[in-house]
């Protein structure tokens, strides 16, 4: 099975549909992410980007369709197996989602303590490695509430990479940060991606960030992927919705359709 998995996509969503309270959020969405590839999914607020990402790691189960990660269908997995399988993922959340009952060190050490037999010394070394990778130091004993937004994100990254995952998922890593910090954080994702060689899926609505880090950009609209390609292909897209989104215009098919839809 592992032999041919190099050709097979690392993550594959097939015809995934999901409704919440009768409202269809994903409507037959399909997307493949190759091993080692860095895909950025863009789309407007509330179009289901976070929902898509949470499907990839099995935090949300689809109403219909399949999610195949490293050749295994998440939909058929038991809770226990899925729980174990998640060690292959690292995920960073929109606001960092750091555990606020723990300090920075304990946050990053948390997965190491639970899932490895590392000694306290080895854990300390690994935590420092992770913090180095996100260019933070001297914050180990601080509480999440004492950190700035950018620092919280970076601690979230450090926690996500501590178990050396094969797949990294970033949910809006730069939203709410100022443009300079955004650029630094985007650079950091690029750097981590290079150094760790992981398969990476990032969600954002910031086109600048998307073009900076992506091997491939995909746009989500009304529950489907409407455009997907390399940054250059994406820029040159003939789809007026994509063009409106890239340029950030208020008038266009994107806003008209969302006004029309209930």
């Amino acid at each position: 099975m592992n032999g041919d998995s190099n050709e097979r996509p690392m993550i594959s969503l097939r015809d995934v549909s999901k409704s919440f309270n009768g409202k269809k959020v994903l409507d037959g969405l399909s997307i493949d992410v190759a091993r080692g590839e860095t895909v950025v999914i863009v789309g407007g607020s509330g179009t289901g980007k976070s929902v898509t990402l949470k499907h990839m790691i099995g935090l949300i189960r689809p109403d219909s369709g399949h999610i195949i990660v490293a050749g295994e269908d998440l939909c058929c997995m038991s809770t226990l197996d899925l729980n174990h399988f998640r060690q292959r993922f690292g995920m960073s959340f929109q606001e960092g989602a750091l555990f606020d009952s723990m300090n920075v060190f304990e946050n990053i050490a948390f997965p190491l303590r639970r899932h490895t037999d590392k000694s306290e010394d080895e854990i300390r070394t690994r935590v420092h490695e992770c913090l180095d990778l996100v260019h933070l130091e001297g914050v180990e004993s601080r509480r999440p509430s004492e950190l700035s937004g950018g620092m919280r994100r970076r601690v979230g990254f450090a926690r996500a990479i501590s178990l050396e995952p094969e797949i990294l998922l970033f949910d809006e890593p730069t939203t709410g940060l100022d443009p300079v910090i955004s650029d630094i954080v985007a650079g950091l994702i690029l750097e981590m991606d290079d150094r760790l060689g992981t398969t990476t899926v990032t969600i954002t609505h910031d086109m600048k960030v998307a073009f900076k880090i992506a091997d491939r950009v995909a746009m989500l609209h009304e529950g489907r992927v409407i455009e997907s390609g390399t940054p250059d292909e994406f820029r040159a897209s003939a789809n007026p919705i994509v063009q409106q989104f890239i340029e950030g215009r208020a008038e266009g098919p994107l806003t008209e359709s969302s006004v029309l839809s209930p």
């Binding site: 949470k54 790691i57 935090l59 809770t79 729980n83 174990h84 399988f85 998640r86 060690q87 993922f89 690292g90 995920m91 959340f93 929109q94 606001e95 989602a97 750091l98 555990f99 606020d100 948390f110 997965p111 639970r114 899932h115 926690r159 996500a160 998922l169």
Partner: peptide
Amino acid sequence: TMRVTEQIDALEALATN
């Protein structure tokens, strides 16, 4: 609070039920 700040999702993502 953990739920609305996604800390529970983070727990699950860290392979912790």
